[in-house]
């Protein structure tokens, strides 16, 4: 397994800490400075820029990832806190060239305009649908209330999440 060193950590020799995190199923052992935020770790140390930095002040939800299955704002979490944890980002949604139902939903229902909030919206939705597979429209709206879309495309985002919920239920029933 490759050991990746944080580029920010070499300047004045701050104390680094070795963490092991599993991101989208792949383990990474990385030395990080304690003050490195999870979103910077993902984007700069691992080169995974699908997770966006929007407001950087815990307001917009563009940086949302799943931490052990729970949707959290990765700008408000230190990477060192996630040692021995499992993280899911937007890059892990597509599997074997096949879109995740939430991606298919955003495609079919025109759930994105500029696309900036989309990764956070989708990760929030995936975390939410795992706990509530058959949500009402109101519940979907509440679930994404920590994610801002400055194109104000909420109507289609809600439809996209509803599409994914229906698709995932159909798939689950088909398997049962």
């Amino acid at each position: 397994m490759a050991v990746e060193t944080a580029p920010t950590a070499t300047t004045t020799g701050p104390k680094l800490r070795r963490i092991r995190v599993t991101v989208n199923g792949a383990a990474h052992d990385v030395d990080v400075e304690p003050r490195t935020l999870l979103v910077h770790f993902l984007r700069e140390n691992l080169g995974m820029t699908g997770t966006h930095i929007g407001c950087d002040t815990t307001s917009c939800g563009a940086c949302t990832v799943l931490l052990n299955g729970r949707a959290v704002k990765s700008c408000t979490l230190f990477a060192v806190q996630t040692d021995q944890s499992s993280i899911a980002t937007v890059e892990g949604l597509e599997k074997d060239g096949k879109l995740h139902p939430i991606q298919e939903g955003f495609h079919q229902e025109h759930g994105l305009q500029c696309g900036f909030c989309t990764p956070g919206m989708m990760m929030t939705a995936v975390g939410f649908l795992a706990t509530n597979p058959a949500p009402t429209e109101l519940q979907i709206r509440e679930a994404i209330s920590g994610n801002l879309c400055r194109c104000t495309g909420y109507v289609n985002i809600v439809k996209s999440i509803d599409y994914a919920a229906r698709k995932m239920r159909e798939t689950a029933e088909g398997k049962a």
């Binding site: 939800g61 959290v72 704002k73 408000t76 979490l77 975390g127 920590g146």
Partner: peptide, 9 residues
């Protein structure tokens, strides 16, 4: 309190 993502932490 805050929003659902913040409440997860």
């Amino acid at each position: 309190i805050a929003d659902p993502l913040v409440r997860n932490m």
